[in-house]
């Protein structure tokens, strides 16, 4: 029987949604699904994994693994893969999975593909699907040779499914490889207080917004429209807006009825996050900004004059 290993990410909120999607996908592919949990205080996460389709949950608990860091976690995952010999190892297309899977593949000299949005069986092997070139092309990849195939999966790859549960828990006595590995000094992570995913109206701001003061204008517009504020990574980096509002490759993917893109040039990293917006209004001083290619309404102008006018018109 083929064995599929699923690496589960977990944080203070438990096992991540992406990880549960990966479990569901693994279940749909047929075979023995094993989940792998690495870290500390894993009891709660183990229960969640068992309730979502894992036939077995492998755990590696170690003090040095409390905070995720590629080096030590990868050494553990490589050891588990070697020992359990799965044909397929699923990770999440997150800043953990996309960090961990390639490094582990490098160590094992195994096949690896990141950012897949589909995995299908193809005879004895797999067909890995990925969206490329600005979401214009779907590419299919075929792993070759023997050995495990490591894959990271994008959001939406499967529906999370609760199952009856009742599998085994197998604690593994492994510790990270020795030597200097580095450490996570601190994390600056915001608590999630907004749900951009379900927002009907989002006013997004990019590098072109220029300042925190101008972002306040966007907030007023969002308020008038009963919507939320969204942002690109650049404006999060600049400190104008909280990271929980980041939309795009490493942020959330949104599907509002109305997206007003202010001072957003339209880098691919951001566009992937707003692809499902029903109506897009672009406001940018550069008429050739790529954002206008996906905009239903195109306003070429300075947002510091356009946005106040919109606010005023909204009364």
């Amino acid at each position: 029987m083929t064995r599929i290993l699923v690496f589960l990410e977990h944080d203070e909120n438990g096992v991540t949604d992406l990880s549960l999607q990966a479990l569901a996908l693994a279940g749909s592919l047929g075979g023995e699904v094993e989940a792998l949990l690495v870290g500390q205080s894993l009891a709660a996460a183990v229960e969640v994994a068992l309730a979502h389709g894992a036939a077995q949950v492998l755990t590696v608990e170690h003090a040095t693994l409390a905070n995720y860091l590629a080096g030590p976690v990868s050494s553990v995952v490589a050891a588990v893969v070697t020992e359990r010999d799965p044909v397929l190892v699923l990770f999440q297309a997150s800043t953990v999975g996309n960090d961990l899977a390639p490094l582990t593949a490098g160590r094992l000299e195994a096949a690896c593909l990141v950012d897949c949005d589909g995995v299908e069986r193809a005879g004895n092997s797999w067909r890995l699907l990925r969206t490329e070139f600005d979401a214009r092309v779907r590419a299919a990849y075929q792993p070759e040779g023997t050995g495990p195939v490591l894959v990271t999966l994008k959001d939406g790859v499967a529906e999370v499914r609760a199952t009856a549960g009742g599998g085994d828990v197998i604690p593994l006595d492994l510790s990270p490889a020795g030597g200097a590995t580095g450490e996570v000094l601190r994390r600056e992570v915001v608590k999630k207080t907004v749900n951009l995913k379900d927002a009907r109206v989002i006013v997004g701001g990019g590098a072109g917004v220029g300042s925190r003061e101008n972002f306040a204008l966007l907030e007023r517009l969002a308020e008038k429209l009963g919507g939320e504020i969204g942002a690109t990574r650049a404006s999060v980096d600049a400190g104008w807006v909280s990271a929980e509002r980041q939309i795009g490759q490493t942020g959330v993917t949104v599907k509002p009825d109305l997206y007003i893109a202010c001072g957003i040039s339209g880098a691919v990293q951001h566009l992937v996050g707003i692809r499902d917006a029903r109506t897009v209004v672009g406001i940018n001083s550069d008429p050739s900004a790529p954002i206008f290619r996906v905009s239903h309404y195109r306003i070429v102008g300075d947002l510091t004059s356009v946005v106040p006018k919109l606010i005023e018109l909204l009364g």
Binding site: L113, R136, V137, A140, Q142, S295, R298
Partner: peptide
């Protein structure tokens, strides 16, 4: 270890832009 087995064009959403 990884072979590109095929490409298919994804349907693009046609956006009619109003100025």
């Amino acid at each position: 270890r990884m072979r590109l087995a095929g490409l298919t064009a994804l349907p693009q959403r046609n956006v009619e832009t109003h100025d």
